[in-house]
Design a protein around this nucleic acid. Structure first.
Lengths: 157, 157
DNA sequence: CATAAACTGTTAGTACACAAACTAATTTGC
DNA sequence: GCAAATTAGTTTGTGTACTAACAGTTTATG
């Protein structure tokens, strides 16, 4: 790793305020940046322990197994995924035979989604690994710290 | 909001362990799920306060303004973005005239990236807003809680 | 010095994620 | 009873994000 010549302060950038603000802006101290990194680590743990599904696909399948059935948009709302995104997720799960869909006679706009027997089986098979993913992600923290962290994280929802 | 009929426990799903594991699996209590939600909120705050750039584009520009220059892959490494992804980010910043690139004579593989004057100006203009993004994201926490949270979050990197 | 190993950037492929614009179906409000 | 608003799902477009495979360049090694 070579050090690059640092030359931040160079020219006229308007007011003194924005100069000072920009000068001591530390990208790696910002919540968003660190969260992105933590998420990268989490995704890597997830795909190692559960190579069969993406986190989003697993969320959808898990929620569908928990509720029994739901319409497509309804499912998206339950797991915080918008209508445009959930479509692709559902298509892929359907294509793999993990969920089924049929239109609801009483409301022709709606697609009723249900997990197939295969989908339920897969969910049950990997639910232990899913719990392990959370555990591994929080591994760097002590039991007490985990509780505090999860508590604060939930407040930022 | 209508309640759906809950019918989770229905058929033979192998061992008692995985049944029990699956039965009390609460998606909304998992780190990964909550982090995704927190990130959604953060992204929404970001795009409201800084509509000019995405968080990733801002990271790249900010780091380039801080270091003066870097090669493409080097820049990616500094902000935790892989080679395939950084290409698109750099292309878009270049297309908008915020950074420039030229190949390095001493190593023909490398593209040396630098912020343009316009890029530097934009960075200085929005750096205050960038700090505000972090502040707003952490708003639900008290000062003490913010410190604790950032400390624990950093441990999960 | 030759060549294997490592590195830089590129491309293709898959999968989110969201905004905006659209169709069709259903509710509502007057 | 009917127009207006709402809802469900789809499509398009943009922007991450990662894997895998690849070509050209540089470096390290035998």
């Amino acid at each position: 790793m070579k050090k690059m010549p640092l030359s931040v302060v160079d020219t006229d950038h308007h007011d003194a305020d924005s100069m000072a603000a920009a000068a001591d802006y530390q990208l790696e101290d910002q919540v968003g940046f660190i969260m992105r990194c933590v998420n990268q680590r989490h995704l890597s743990i997830f795909s190692r322990l559960i190579p069969e599904l993406t986190p989003t696909q697993f969320s959808a399948l898990a929620k569908l197994c928990a509720t029994g059935q739901a319409s497509q948009n309804e499912l998206g709302r339950m797991i915080a995924i918008d209508a445009a995104t959930i479509k692709g997720v559902v298509d892929r799960l359907k294509h793999r035979g993990l969920i089924s869909s049929e239109s609801q006679p009483s409301d022709l706009r709606r697609l009723i989604l249900k997990p197939t027997e295969e989908g339920r089986q897969l969910f049950h098979q990997i639910s232990a690994a899913a719990r392990q993913v959370s555990e591994d992600t929080l591994k760097p923290l002590s039991e007490k710290e985990k509780q505090v962290f999860m508590n604060l994280l939930a407040k930022l929802r």
